[in-house]
């Protein structure tokens, strides 16, 4: 199995995640796009770990997944909080501070 193909897939997914951040205006979806980027990273790491036969890549993935969980907790809390105040989670509406 060639690592190359996995890396290519990972780059594609990463780019799609980036596009998601830029395209979507719903804060939750923006956030999900970031998760997609992290997933792409995970794929690259596992592929490299396979190629190198070293465990460090797997460990890294483990840490990323868990950190993502922590991020999600805080991120969703933020979104809920701002929804309560503003009744909108459209990030284009975040323009209280100008210029």
């Amino acid at each position: 199995m060639q690592t190359e193909w996995f890396i290519l897939l990972s780059v594609i997914l990463f780019t799609m995640g980036v596009l998601g951040v830029l395209f979507r205006r719903n804060a939750i979806l923006v956030f999900m796009s970031v998760e997609l980027m992290l997933n792409a990273t995970n794929l690259a790491l596992v592929a490299f770990a396979h190629q190198w036969g070293s465990e460090a890549g797997h460990l890294f993935v483990f840490f990323i997944i868990t950190v993502a969980a922590a991020e999600v907790a805080v991120g969703l809390a933020l979104i809920v909080a701002i929804f309560r105040t503003k009744h909108s989670i459209n990030i284009d509406d975040l323009r209280q501070m100008e210029g």
Partner: peptide
């Protein structure tokens, strides 16, 4: 453009 996404754009 709007704010946050423009910032993201500049980061990109």
């Amino acid at each position: 453009a709007g704010d946050v996404r423009v910032y993201a754009l500049s980061l990109l």
